[in-house]
Design a protein around this nucleic acid. Structure first.
Lengths: 169, 169
DNA sequence: AGGAAATAGTTAGCTGGCGTACTATCTCGG
DNA sequence: CCGAGATAGTACGCCAGCTAACTATTTCCT
């Protein structure tokens, strides 16, 4: 009596699962419904967040960089290679994000006295102001997205997601 | 007593939440941990799936197209604009996916007798063979990813995700 | 019937990632 | 103490998506 055994479609994923059951009855679809919905939901959340960020003039990539620097605390300084590792992206991609943010005046590169291969990246006052305002909006946006959920459901999801992340990563 | 109130970090998200609590104690972080883990997990799943698809010579975009045609059943024919709508992408992007798949010999474009603006897109035998083999692997890969979960957790997640998709979409 | 508006597909140009290759610098073992 | 190898950042070229603009065709309204 799994959820996937329900023969009547209620959403787009149910329709897809019904098709697969007809076309490929040999497949075990247990995970597909769950992970398909996970993927759809993440996509929907990202769309909402991107819209919110756009209203502050930021793309998600830029926001992630500013947020990572901001949450490191004063003096709001980080090193490019640490940022690229923290955000799970290539150093080349980080170079171009930093270029954009620097020419937008939201951060500054300066020499790293301890390592002449490297740089320090510091928020400007304007960058600090923008990320702080955006973060307020961001937290509110995320809270709105889960406002339809019972608090115990949020706790349950968090517990299961934590388990899965342990397993998968 | 929410999960986020736990003061000791256990994973990367906990570390981030701890930083935010110190730097921005005014923010309500209830949703951030939950949705952050959702995003990380989706990313991890997609990485695994992409690796599996690469071993069959497919990218995720191409796989999605072949799968959408395959699950429509015989005669394995769909129309580009329907595909782009079903996969939530631009028609221009679909044109280029179809170009790639057609020159790889996995599908064929033919004229739509009912509408001369449009085309029919049909799997070739080779395309059918490749998507069927890949799907078997895909279902197995997904099932492996959730194998660490208790069956009731899968059911719970599915229920909550369904609710959230209803709310958010 | 006929013209306005909608729709299907493509092309062109943009964007933000990626991997690779390169230079400069640091680290460490012998 | 010095040379091999690791590491930091960047430039370059590629790729897969997007939007906008365009042509051809269909649909719809009066």
């Amino acid at each position: 009596m799994t959820a996937e055994a329900n023969p009547e479609p209620n959403d787009a994923i149910d329709v897809i699962l019904t098709q697969w059951r007809r076309e490929r009855p040999d497949l075990d679809l247990s995970a597909m419904g769950f992970l398909g919905r996970l993927s759809l939901l993440t996509r929907a959340v990202e769309t909402r967040v991107d819209d919110m960020l756009a209203s502050h003039g930021l793309g998600r990539g830029e926001f992630d960089v500013l947020a990572a620097i901001r949450r490191s605390g004063p003096p709001y300084t980080q090193i490019p290679s640490e940022l690229s590792a923290a955000l799970m992206m290539s150093r080349a991609g980080m170079t171009s994000r930093l270029d954009r943010l620097e020419s937008a005046g939201l951060l500054q590169r300066s020499l790293d006295p301890a390592d002449r291969r490297s740089f320090r990246v510091t928020l400007t006052d304007q960058g600090r102001a923008i990320i702080d305002a955006t973060l307020t909006d961001h937290a509110a946006t995320l809270n709105r997205l889960i406002s339809g959920l019972a608090p115990e459901d949020v706790a349950t999801m968090t517990r299961i997601l934590r388990t899965m992340l342990d397993t998968v990563t």
